[in-house]
Amino acid sequence: MIDVADILPHRYPMLLVDRVLDIEPGRRVTAVKAITRNEPWYADAAAVSSSDGAAYPPALLVESWAQAAGLVFGIEQPNPDVLAGRVMLLGSLSDVEFHRPVLPGDVLEHRVRVARAVGETVIFEGECVVGGELVFTVSRMVVAYRPAGVLREAGGEQRT
């Protein structure tokens, strides 16, 4: 079984992929994440007083999908330490359409495909479903693979 923490640098509470169901390295992945009220975003009791109020934040839905995308190449070039090796940097997103809210108890199934890979730049596309029902679609996500040193340099600039 693949341990996503061996591949991705994200950790609790921001490791938002639970398990890989199916992967073709460099081509596509299907991965799942279970949504639970035990995530820190639900710590405020007032937040879950109604079903609408308990909807999972769309930004985290897309973050989770993007982390699944990170597994496609990451499985052959793992990056468990963000300051070593090559890191995946999110460049842009286009046409992410949301179709239904996600609530605690839902299990997200992310389907991510490589649309195009040119040098160190990769374009992903795909969708997310819950119980076979479409949650959102991603027309295009562009990422760039860069040496981890670029992050250290950027952080250093900000801290001086």
Binding site: P9, H10, R11, Y12, P13, M14, L15, P40, A59, L60, V62, E63, A66, V82, L83, L90, L151, R152, G155
Partner: peptide
């Protein structure tokens, strides 16, 4: 809270 895991020892505010 996101900084604890994004990333350990190198906090970056996530694009998302």
């Amino acid at each position: 809270p996101v900084f604890a895991g994004h990333y350990p020892n190198f906090p970056i505010f996530p694009g998302m």
